[in-house]
């Protein structure tokens, strides 16, 4: 065969004359997002086709842009294969946690007052957590490089993981304490109607309508998600422990590992952007500040909801912790 006779390439030609041999992580992500800043338009359609205009306005036209997004790296350097391998192990662990509690029938032994509190607090959570999944997929489809896309896709999958394990727990509670716990209305009605849930629902529905990609990233990953992760994975876990609910506490602690991975790439992305253009600190800060009243209101409503449970946490702790978690994240980002 007339195979081309030339010097064997060191790597993909688009990566240039590299000194270090790129990793598997890099050769399966670098420059995959060929349509970012493509001329005359992102997609091979009429340059004025509606979706071309959408991307030009909300991605290329976002104030949150740097000269080169291809330099960003996920601190976990995760490929798809890494992701499913890591999560396969973590899910094996969670299966074992559930096996243990099923063998001990620990859900049956929970205090009925705590079960009643869980029905109001934990059962409706699959609705807001599903919105975090949706929004992560928006950030992913709009992000300028595959390195960012992959992080946000894996984050969306993590959100689905959390929703599904809480769904399983809901069914365990229903089997032990009454079928009504697993009815859709038991979750949806408070989510749609109860005053305690409305600040969170208002915030999340409004987040769904944020379409500038940088703003969607900032609202989801710098403000909303870190707050909800703290309120759910940490504060609800603390409350569960006080009520002898080790199963829920262990599940939530596991989800917090996922949340930490999301924080890591979020911080890395913000730092990368600010290093490229320090003026972006103002852009991000403006978006963050705009959403702080909504997250504060959400945290207060959530704290009030947690306070209705037995063995409630010291008053003020929940709101303060949510504020602290957000402040720490923003500080780590350099904001």
């Amino acid at each position: 065969m007339a195979t081309t006779k030339r010097k064997p390439p060191k790597t993909w030609s688009l990566l240039g004359d590299v000194k270090r041999r790129p990793s598997t992580y890099e050769v399966t992500a670098a420059k995959f997002n060929y349509h970012f800043r493509r001329e005359p338009a992102p997609f091979e359609m009429d340059p004025a086709a509606p979706i071309n205009l959408w991307y030009l306005a909300n991605r290329e036209g976002s104030p949150f842009n740097v000269e080169d997004w291809e330099g960003f790296r996920d601190p976990a350097r995760m490929t798809y294969s890494d992701y499913v391998t890591v999560q396969h192990d973590r899910e094996t662990y969670l299966d074992a946690v559930i096996d243990h509690h099923e063998a001990a029938d620990s859900v049956t032994g929970l205090d009925p007052a705590w079960v009643e509190a869980l029905t109001r607090i934990a059962v409706p959570l699959r609705f807001p957590l599903h919105i975090l999944q949706m929004t992560a997929l928006y950030v992913a489809q709009m992000a300028p490089s595959a390195y960012i896309i992959n992080c946000s896709n894996f984050q969306a999958a993590d959100e689905m993981r959390r929703v599904q394990r809480l769904a399983y727990l809901t069914k365990m509670l229903a089997n032990a304490h009454g079928d009504a716990i697993a009815e859709t209305a038991t979750a949806r009605s408070p989510w749609e109607e109860d005053a305690a849930w409305q600040p969170m629902r208002r915030m999340l529905e409004k987040m769904l309508a944020v379409y500038d990609w940088g703003q969607a990233f900032a609202v989801l990953d710098l403000v909303v998600k870190p707050t909800i992760d703290e309120l759910v994975n940490v504060q609800l876990a603390a409350l569960a422990e006080r009520n002898g609910d080790d199963l829920l506490a262990q599940l939530l602690a596991e989800f917090h590992l996922d949340a930490q991975r999301s924080k890591d790439w979020t911080i890395a992305l913000a730092q990368y952007a600010l290093a490229s253009d320090p003026a972006l600190a103002d852009t991000l800060r403006e978006w963050v500040d705009e959403w702080i009243p909504a997250v504060d209101e959400t945290a207060e409503a959530w704290a009030a909801l947690l306070a209705t449970a037995p063995n409630a946490l010291p008053s003020g702790q929940v709101v303060e912790a949510a504020g602290r978690a957000r402040a720490e994240l923003l500080a780590a980002c350099g904001l």
Binding site: D95, I98, Q164
Partner: peptide, 23 residues
């Protein structure tokens, strides 16, 4: 392996449809 089969709880992973109020 957790005791509940997929079919016993799967619908709870997929019923997150609600009426929008704020947008």
């Amino acid at each position: 392996m957790p005791r509940l089969s997929r079919s016993e709880w799967y619908d709870l992973t997929r019923d997150m449809n609600w009426d929008l109020s704020y947008v």
